[in-house]
């Protein structure tokens, strides 16, 4: 009886571990889809492919919302990791926030269809790439938080590096935009999208900062 209960306990734990992994897989997936769709947008303008990408990100977002609720419920119902539960839930919330940013950016592009001149494409692509790399490193840091706490710091250093990269690219891009002869409203629209694409790296940095604190607390 006790053995059976214990086996069930281990089974449930394994399932929850898998759910954490799945949650993070989806964020990486969404970040890659966004980067690919954004590059496609720069190349072809608003297209069928972009609409498909928007749908995909939407689906991922809503599936991850479900998963998040399941994880939260299970953590509370079974009073798992009572000492770290608050931190883990904040982490999940932070990661979910990044996914929401991707979804919102997809919508913004679909609705506002910004006109991005060819001359800024390289910087916009570099900005999207740095932001994706930043989120990717954050996911690795988050996975390490669950299994290999010593590696969190290494991944966090990468998060900071890519965030600074994204910051530099964004500053350069905005300087160039405002130095151009474009009408002010166009400049402001481009600045707005530069900020939105950069947002995910800024958010990733915030989550990584918190993660560093959770990691300190997690040391036994």
């Amino acid at each position: 009886m006790l053995l059976k209960k214990r086996l069930v306990l281990f089974g449930k734990t394994k399932r929850l571990e898998a759910q954490f992994d799945e949650f993070m897989d989806r964020i990486i997936e969404a970040s890659l889809i966004f980067e690919r769709a954004f590059k496609g947008y720069l190349r072809d303008g608003f297209s069928e492919d972009f609409s498909i990408a928007v749908d995909e990100v939407n689906q991922i977002e809503s599936a991850n919302d479900d998963l998040k609720r399941k994880i939260e419920t299970r953590l509370y119902e079974q009073t798992l990791i009572p000492d770290l539960r608050g931190d883990v839930l904040s982490l999940i919330e932070g990661l979910d926030g990044i996914l929401n940013l991707y979804q919102a950016n997809c919508y913004r592009i679909s609705i506002e269809k910004p006109d991005i001149p060819q001359v800024y494409h390289r910087d916009f692509k570099a900005l999207a790439k740095a932001s994706t790399a930043c989120v990717d490193s954050l996911i690795m840091a988050s996975r390490a938080f669950f299994t290999n706490i010593e590696a969190v710091r290494d991944h966090n250093v990468k998060v900071m590096f890519y965030e600074t990269e994204a910051d530099k690219i964004s500053t350069r891009l905005k300087t160039r935009i405002f130095a151009s002869d474009l009408p002010l409203e166009h400049k402001i629209h481009l600045r707005y999208f530069s900020d939105r694409v950069e947002d995910s790296s800024n958010r990733a940095e915030d989550v990584a900062d918190n993660l560093a604190i959770y990691t300190l607390k997690r040391s036994i």
Binding site: T13, I81, T147
Partner: peptide, 14 residues
């Protein structure tokens, strides 16, 4: 031991 075993926090919890 824990640093070597690299257990998932959920498993460590159990």
């Amino acid at each position: 031991l824990l640093s070597w075993a690299k257990l998932h926090i959920l498993r460590r919890d159990v």
